[in-house]
Amino acid sequence: MLTLDKIYHAAYILRPVIRKTDIIYAPNLSKDGYVYLKTENLQITGSFKVRGAYYKISQLSPEEKSRGVIACSAGNHAQGVALAAAKNGINSLICIPDSAPISKIEATKSYGAEVELVAGAYDDAYARACELQKEQSRTFIHPFDDDDVIAGQGTIGLEILDQLPNADAVVVPIGGGGLISGIAFVMKHLKPDCKIYGVQTEGAPSMKRSVDLQKKSPLAAVSTFADGIAVKCPGDITFDMVSKYVDEIVTVTDDEVASAVLELIEHQKLIAEGAGAVSVAAVMFGKIDVAGKNVVCVLSGGNIDVTILSRVITRGLLKSGRVANLTIPLIDKPGQLQGISEIIAQLGGNVVSVHHDRGEANSAINSCVIKIGMETRDQKQIDEIKSALQGAGYKLM
């Protein structure tokens, strides 16, 4: 059974091991409310997961420790288990989905864990870990559906209350539900009027679907770049706790998450992975009522692969109107590009790429297509440029 005493005990055990992460005021994220960021992306191992993993392993018996531990993870829990096991002198084996970012896989190995890659998503890695646990008699460290793990994650709730006692709402990413279960348990027992909002992506809404249907309802598949919360089915414990303590669950799109990642980089100088930024996306895109409230967004992790980060930034720029692409069919004659460039320049756009393509087989012999990439301020400026080009007689495809 999860109790406040257990969570306070977890905080005591974790004090010399983990970082009490800062809460940072972020005035740019909302015009209506006062938004703060709980920066678990700056935690050791780069995510909150080390809290639950370390506390769980610290509570194992000597006999359980002697058999070694096994876990499954999309990457962040893996690093937490690997570090905790290493600090306790325990052998660890981690099953990780082969779709997890390379950076998370290599980081897990760097802490001394043995890693087995499993084809598929988190739930496939979980099934494989259960097989190996039976074969090797290791102690299983569940990433979310465990009272000790949830107690470790709940220490974040204690820190929030200490750092921002007047918090009106806490916005938390949901994958399997361990993080939000721990935080919600603390907040609803110590500050019952504080609202708890969970956030999932539209491509992996397993907890929201289950709560809406009032029963655990596994998804057939998940599709999101927020790999840390790409879970097909919530846990038994976490489903019950979320149903009891969480006020509302909302979803965000991958494009909205990408915009949130970009916003955090530009204005907060923080790197968050997709799963870590969903809380910010929910606030930025009005999924939650924050008017006049002190709202804490939990940035659950910052372990994003550099190659994925590049794609996310590009998508975020497109979504926010910071870059745009124009495709213009033309008669292939001198001066056409100059006319287009002058209009774009007059309206403050910056041309960064030009591609000239001769007409296709079914088009006029003297036709061509110009593809232009631009840097812009926002969608309003893009619309102004398009309108000016059309007004000058150019057609846009």
Rank of each mutant, 00 (worst) to 15 (best):
128 R>C: 11
139 T>P: 05
115 V>T: 07
132 L>Q: 06
130 C>N: 04
143 P>G: 02
119 A>S: 15
115 V>K: 07
111 Y>E: 09
104 K>W: 11
107 A>K: 04
135 E>A: 06
135 E>P: 01
130 C>E: 10
136 Q>K: 03
132 L>D: 09
103 S>W: 05
132 L>N: 05
137 S>G: 02
133 Q>H: 08
106 E>H: 12
118 V>F: 14
110 S>Y: 14
103 S>C: 12
116 E>H: 13
134 K>Y: 08
128 R>G: 05
111 Y>R: 02
118 V>C: 12
133 Q>M: 04
138 R>T: 01
109 K>P: 12
139 T>D: 05
133 Q>R: 08
106 E>W: 14
101 P>T: 02
117 L>M: 13
121 A>E: 14
143 P>N: 00
135 E>I: 02
128 R>M: 09
131 E>R: 01
119 A>G: 15
140 F>C: 01
106 E>G: 10
125 A>K: 02
109 K>Y: 14
111 Y>F: 15
135 E>N: 03
133 Q>E: 09
102 I>H: 14
108 T>N: 12
140 F>S: 02
141 I>D: 00
117 L>G: 10
125 A>H: 10
122 Y>K: 07
124 D>V: 05
108 T>R: 04
106 E>P: 09
129 A>E: 03
105 I>C: 09
136 Q>N: 04
135 E>R: 01
138 R>F: 06
132 L>Y: 06
106 E>T: 09
121 A>M: 11
136 Q>A: 02
132 L>A: 04
101 P>V: 02
127 A>P: 11
111 Y>Q: 06
107 A>S: 13
139 T>E: 02
124 D>H: 11
105 I>W: 06
132 L>M: 08
120 G>W: 06
105 I>N: 03
116 E>I: 10
128 R>N: 10
128 R>S: 03
126 Y>H: 15
101 P>D: 13
117 L>Q: 10
134 K>H: 08
107 A>G: 10
110 S>N: 15
105 I>Q: 05
139 T>L: 00
101 P>I: 01
116 E>C: 09
115 V>S: 10
126 Y>P: 11
126 Y>T: 03
130 C>H: 07
127 A>F: 13
113 A>E: 12
117 L>H: 13
106 E>A: 08
124 D>K: 04
131 E>C: 05
124 D>A: 09
125 A>E: 11
128 R>K: 13
142 H>T: 01
102 I>P: 11
108 T>S: 15
130 C>V: 08
117 L>D: 12
123 D>C: 08
124 D>M: 11
134 K>L: 04
125 A>Y: 11
118 V>S: 05
104 K>C: 08
103 S>N: 08
132 L>P: 05
105 I>V: 15
117 L>T: 09
104 K>I: 10
136 Q>R: 04
116 E>L: 07
119 A>V: 14
110 S>G: 11
143 P>A: 00
134 K>G: 06
137 S>H: 05
137 S>E: 06
123 D>F: 09
110 S>H: 15
120 G>I: 05
101 P>S: 05
131 E>T: 06
136 Q>I: 01
130 C>D: 09
120 G>Q: 08
130 C>R: 03
139 T>A: 01
139 T>V: 00
112 G>V: 06
111 Y>W: 15
117 L>N: 11
120 G>A: 10
135 E>H: 03
120 G>V: 02
109 K>H: 14
